[in-house]
Write a protein that binds this DNA or RNA. Structure first.
Lengths: 189, 189
DNA sequence: GTCTATAACGTGATAGAC
DNA sequence: GTCTATCACGTTATAGAC
């Protein structure tokens, strides 16, 4: 991926997570980048190609992050905090939602190739989250009722929803993060 | 609101919660109803008018529901189950998401009047949910760490996210509902 | 209250010159 | 690799007849 393709993808990602996949066009990409929309089509022939590339990059990024957490810590709490940090990082300055939530809302309007890529990404998130929760529970780091798998689904749903609710009232984001930790057995402060 | 206006609003609601606010047009409404798009404009002059009417109806519906639960039960569990039922009712047959999640994703593209109406709706949901949790905790029905307010934000985020995750894997919806109950102090089955 | 007709514009996408 | 020019179409919305 060359420099121009990357600049396009960066801007597309920002607009996507701020406005939804149907909320931006090739014009929205071309103008700020100082190009014409035909130039965007040269790098991403169709909007489907662009959409698949956006999700695929998130998958690579997530795989790299989890590999790094695996190397740098044995504490499940730190892994989980790493994920929470990753999710909320972009929200602070630009109110960017997490990709899976945006994908879910636009789902029925998305081309099949994007749906396939999205399903694979979601499965990777779930598998990773469940394994961290399972390990953390077995080793006594976390304390929660029910299965690690169900708790993983709940956790992903909660964090996804939290970013969205923050658009109504920003302070809800920190409130939910606090509550998430308490519900995993953290001692209250 | 006359009969035709109601039929339009019903269809618009379905399309909205299935495809997002930018995922349907006046044509999508006119064709299945056997009218021309000009007829839709007669009832809802602008799409903003239509959007505000959609949210306003959800506010009325929610107010009616909470008033009814207030009359029919003193058990906070039943009130909460009523809300969960209300949320997941439409998902089963048509994969309709909850309105606040769809509003949040489309947020940056929505006209100000819709944002105002949406904020008011969200606040009503939060206030009701927090009061049910507070009362339920005080009377010993629920058992959870942290404040009722933070737990309310978490609960709304979780249920909203749960409907969305169900688009990737339907079985996650029941898994999360189970886990939500456990995290409120229900005994596992 | 619904129709036909149409305006004004934005959309994804392509052809061909440079 | 980016440009100009353009196509075919979908969008919200309005005017005016019936």
């Amino acid at each position: 991926m060359n420099e121009t393709a990357k600049r396009i993808l960066d801007l597309a990602e920002a607009l996507w997570l701020e406005r939804g996949f149907n909320g931006f066009s090739y014009q929205h990409l071309a103008e700020p980048l100082g190009m014409r929309n035909a130039a965007i089509h040269y790098h991403y022939p169709t909007k489907t190609d662009l959409g698949v590339a956006l999700i695929a990059r998130f998958r690579r990024r997530f795989a790299r992050s989890t590999a790094q957490w695996q190397e740098t810590t044995a504490d499940p709490w730190l892994k989980l905090e790493g994920y929470i940090e990753l999710l909320t990082f972009n929200y602070a300055d630009a109110e960017r939602l997490c990709p899976t939530g945006v994908l879910a809302v636009d789902w029925a309007t998305l081309p099949e190739q994007m749906q396939d890529e999205a399903r694979a990404f979601m499965q990777e998130l779930y598998d990773w989250c469940a394994s961290v929760l399972r390990e953390g529970a077995e080793k006594g780091y976390f304390r929660f009722a029910g299965s690690a798998e169900d708790k993983a689904a709940l956790l992903l749903a909660t964090l996804q929803g939290a970013l969205q609710l923050a658009r109504f009232r920003p302070e809800w984001l920190d409130a939910i993060k606090t509550q998430v930790r308490l519900d995993l057995g953290a001692r209250g402060q």
